[in-house]
Design a protein around this nucleic acid. Structure first.
Lengths: 102, 102
DNA sequence: CTGAATCCAAGTGGATACTG
DNA sequence: CAGTATCCACTTGGATTCAG
């Protein structure tokens, strides 16, 4: 197993809202305010910051429609989609080893 | 997929040296100074701190031998071993989507 | 040998207000 | 609608020193 690769993956996922955003986008295209409403507890500031980091990491794509009012759509990139899929075993691990979280 | 579980897993792994320590212990029992030597760049302080967090999270076990000089051995718990195994897909993802890291 | 204690620099994240 | 700017509190992690 390649430790450096795992650390790189954990690195992008380690900011508080990354996993929640990936999960939300795994359900399809979402707009900024849509994410803001659907992800409980997140602030505009953190949503914007996390989206930027995920985009820089190549995990999501951002499309801007030059219209009034402004409209921006986010999607999972192939890499983001693959990363989210690779998280499934972690979910299984939690189910088995963290009964209190169930 | 259970987002909260994934976040819990990522949470313990997100401190800088967690993955490296789990990887090292996946090779068998290790002592404190042994880990210190084998994990490049880690300091005593961070090794001690990370070991404590991993132990509190139930991922590793700690055995103290009351002798002089003091001797302490660390091992992966079943949960820690399972978590490390669940990281394999992340390694695969990095291989495919982070060619520069290879 | 295996830590804990202290000090410090940098990063993370929350609240709030403002902008094109 | 989709952010940015500012301020602040808390945490992380490195270096170094002290202790059982």
């Amino acid at each position: 197993m390649e430790i450096a690769g795992v650390q790189a993956a954990v690195g992008v996922l380690s900011s508080k809202w990354s996993v929640a955003i990936l999960a939300e986008l795994s359900g399809g295209t979402r707009r900024f305010n849509e994410l803001l409403r659907r992800i409980d507890g997140i602030s505009r500031r953190m949503l914007a910051a996390t989206l930027r980091r995920l985009e820089e990491a190549g995990l999501i794509t951002r499309r801007v429609y030059a219209a009034v009012p402004a409209r921006v759509e986010y999607d999972l990139s192939p890499a983001g989609s693959a990363l989210f899929a690779a998280l499934t075993p972690l979910s299984g691990w939690a189910l088995q080893h963290r009964p209190e979280a169930a």
